[in-house]
């Protein structure tokens, strides 16, 4: 593989568009209740610690891409689906004021980080 393989693949399409159609069918859909897994992340991750173990709802199924834990090492052969998950702030931060119980936070995960809740 040449050093420029990523640029070549994304030329004229963009990234993540260049991975379209490369992941297996998405396991979750909008509205599904999910829990964030607490996987090991010794080298690199983009899954925030504050979401580990929390439960939320899939808000958007976004796109296919290699997970950052793989892509950081230029392993781009197994793209997976990504999901924006919506959490109640109270679920993430127990001290969050009750008066603002409707407040939410959204952030994105690759499929490996999610399990059905």
């Amino acid at each position: 593989m040449s050093r420029g393989h990523h640029a070549e693949k994304a030329t004229g399409k963009g990234d993540p568009q260049c991975f379209r159609g490369e992941a297996p069918a998405p396991k979750f859909k909008v509205g599904d209740r999910v829990r964030i897994r607490d996987l090991p992340d010794i080298f690199y991750t983009r899954c925030q610690v504050y979401t580990r173990g929390a439960e939320g709802v899939v808000a958007v199924v976004t796109h296919e891409s290699p997970a950052p834990e793989d892509e950081a090492w230029d392993n781009v052969d197994e793209p997976e689906w990504f999901y924006i998950v919506r959490f109640k702030q109270k679920e993430l931060w127990p001290e969050y004021p009750d008066v603002y119980e409707n407040d939410t936070l959204q952030t994105e995960f690759s499929e490996r980080w999610l399990e059905s809740a």
Binding site: V99, D103, L105
Partner: peptide
Amino acid sequence: PSDVEVRVEDSNQKC
């Protein structure tokens, strides 16, 4: 206002 949901978007991936 407290009756409006504040929704934080933590932009951590490619979106």
